[in-house]
Design a binder for these strands. Structure first.
Lengths: 306, 306
DNA sequence: ATGAAAGCGCTAACAT
DNA sequence: ATGTTAGCGCTTTCAT
């Protein structure tokens, strides 16, 4: 690796002290009444020498890293990828950089990632927790790391979170299905004890109750494609198949699609499918799936602000 | 922020010197013949105090960061998101962390990102270049930064690249369409002078020639959804509509889908659509789009190795 | 088998 | 309006 210019080089060549150089290059010139000439001279030299500040040195000195970490269950899920994209963009506005971790929906990997990222002195963390474990999160927080949970969280804990209104979303989706004439509806849920899931189930069940629907089912136990696939297969084996399925996440919906395709059940002729979590791709296909889109962008903005 | 334990603390408490602590914690104990007892003692203290090494200090000292940068046109494109996921995973195996940059397919943002990332002392860069500019890449490389281009690249340049076999992929896809009976085929291409595009066009045209198809069209000029949308609209306005469209990327295909949907042209009844770049979601929809999947995973593995 | 001390590039408190 | 200097936490050379 070639030599990289640093402020000492610039100081030498420009003939000023490193302090002055540092001040000019950090936009603090005016505060210290550094003359225009000096400023220009220094900037010119820096520019000519292709100076790029060394973030490590700066961060080591200042103690903060201008870095946030984002941990998602999987970047392969477009919902989270989109989230990552937004957060990345939003963070950049504040001159923050985002380290993205992919936990593969595995609590152990998640923990490892957190250690890895912590060693990079992150200033904060945005996480879509993958499991039902949160002790490590609470611990990190107690050590002074700001943490925001997104999408999935646990209400009883002292962890801040951002999330869309799960109850309303589920209620509205359920009502929509009922209004379409469906009377036998199944929902495939995600991780059972997570607050968003509980709220969604509540929204679903309340809608069923309000409209006097009694033949409904709540099944499933994870936000995975496999869960969607399996539960759909099971639902289709029933004597009285449901006429509509409400998937609680886009991954679950993918599993449903796969199962429906295998069983040659057509949407929407033979069955209706509605899902939580928008997906940029679902809009273009025929027939379009109905989805309750979450205000990802807003969620991200709020989350980035800490 | 609370105090974070560092090796000085551990040295004090364990009663050994900073050097010894550093050596033990870096697995260099044996090389320096540090006694088992000492090792255990130090490790125990470190563990108890929740020691996490400060990557900044280490990197400042050693000069390398164990960090690679990945710049993609957009994480919202599942193709790139998947790539990011793979690279992230692969890099982690070598204890590298990945900084992901989203250039939004804008050459200026791309340049800015590169500066940002360079200041973080990245050890290498994997990039899907967004435009037709590459001077800044060549410059960085000449300054000693290892760069690997993925998916899009320019052959005449001295930049290493990893890519699938574009010629063969395009040829096979074209042949497939012809074998399905199509005689009027249009392809919508991406950035014209990028090597992958040139190869794809060549594969397409060679297939047309080999099978004696004369009524074909090559149109478009960018790997964007908008391009796909626009060109599809234009194609549909022609007196003799093509019976098949070959989209050169999944983004272009998305644009096609949108246009086809608006014009109420059904796939595959009224028109066939085939696309480059696999997409996890396209597999599940009815009717499935045919795609030439690129060996993303392999590409990434190779790229990460530098 | 273990330690002392220099120095990576930067910022900020303290001069002048 | 500009400069001197200490020190962030770590690795590594040189001692012992």
């Amino acid at each position: 690796m070639q030599h990289k210019t640093n402020i000492v080089d610039i100081a030498k060549i420009s003939g000023f002290s490193i302090t002055t150089v540092s001040r000019v290059l950090n936009g603090k010139a005016d505060r210290y009444r550094i003359s225009k000439k000096t400023q220009e001279k220094i900037k010119a030299v820096a520019n000519e020498m292709d100076y790029v500040p060394n973030a490590f040195a700066r961060n080591l000195r200042t103690g903060y890293s201008k870095t946030i970490a984002l941990i998602v269950p999987s970047l392969k899920n477009p919902f989270f990828a989109e989230m990552a994209s937004f957060i990345n963009l939003e963070a950049r506005k504040y001159d923050y950089i985002t380290l993205i971790g992919d936990s593969d929906d595995d609590a152990n990997i998640e923990k490892e990632e957190i250690i890895q990222l912590t060693s990079r002195n992150i200033d904060g963390m945005i996480i879509v927790p993958c499991g039902s474990e949160w002790d490590h999160l609470l611990k990190k927080q107690s050590e002074g790391l700001p943490i925001v949970c997104v999408d999935r969280y646990f209400e009883e804990l002292d962890l801040s979170f951002v999330s869309s209104n799960n109850y309303d979303g589920a209620y509205e989706a359920s009502r929509y299905l009922i209004e379409q004439g469906h009377r036998k509806i199944a929902c495939i849920q995600g991780v059972r004890y997570s607050t968003p899931n509980i709220q969604r189930v509540k929204g679903f069940e309340d809608a069923m109750a309000d409209f006097g629907i009694t033949s409904y089912a709540v099944t499933g136990d994870s936000f995975s494609e496999q869960n969607g696939y399996l539960e759909t297969k099971l639902l289709l084996q029933q004597a009285k198949r449901p006429t509509a399925i409400f998937a609680f996440s886009n991954t679950i919906a993918m599993g449903c699609l796969k199962a429906l395709k295998e069983e040659k059940v057509k949407i929407p002729e033979n069955i209706s499918l509605i899902t939580f979590d928008d997906n940029p791709y679902l809009n273009y296909i025929e027939p379009p799936l109905t989805c309750i889109s979450q205000p990802v962008e807003d969620i991200c903005k709020i989350a980035v602000k800490n």
